[in-house]
Every structure is written in structure tokens, then in C-alpha cells.
Amino acid sequence: MEPRIRIRRSAFVDAASCVACGCCVKVCPLGAISVFRGVAANVDPKKCVGCGKCARECPASVIVIQEAQA
């Protein structure tokens, strides 16, 4: 019997294009995203549930919601 793979969604940031404005941080209801040292946003995969609020808010549209293996 094959092991069950739980698929969950999570936010992924294109760090190279991120402007570190922090708009995503303000809208995340779980506090799962932070701006690391003023360089780029960083998602905590343990907290993120992939709701997509950050992706909608990101002015540079550099956040995507993708399936992530739990």
C-alpha cells in the first residue's frame, strides 16, 4: 500500500524580484510571512496555509500560491 501524500498549498516568494515593501506581512492572518533583513519576504512553510492574501496584495506580484508537500 502506497503512503498517503498530503498536499497542501503554500506561498512562495520570488526573492530576487521582491522589493521587501512588507505589504504581504500586513495582510497575513497567521503571521506566516516576514521581511528578512530588509532584503526579501520570507514565508514560514509551517505556518502558511496558502490562503493567497499576500499574493493578491503584493504590488510586484512576486508571490505565487503553489502546492507544497507536507
Binding site: 533583513r37 530588509g38 504590488p59
Partner: peptide, 24 residues
């Protein structure tokens, strides 16, 4: 575009990000 599109090309934002990159 999006409400805070200015943040993408804001000169102060770009400058402070460059400073942060240099510091890190």
C-alpha cells in the same frame, strides 16, 4: 495597477533595500 504599486519603484525603497543588501 495594485494600490501600493509605487512601493515597487519608490526611490527611497530601492535605496534602503540596497543599503540592507550591502549591510547583510
Amino acid at each position: 495597477f495594485k494600490p501600493r504599486s509605487w512601493c515597487v519603484y519608490c526611490p527611497m525603497g530601492t535605496m534602503t533595500q540596497l543599503i540592507c543588501k550591502a549591510k547583510n
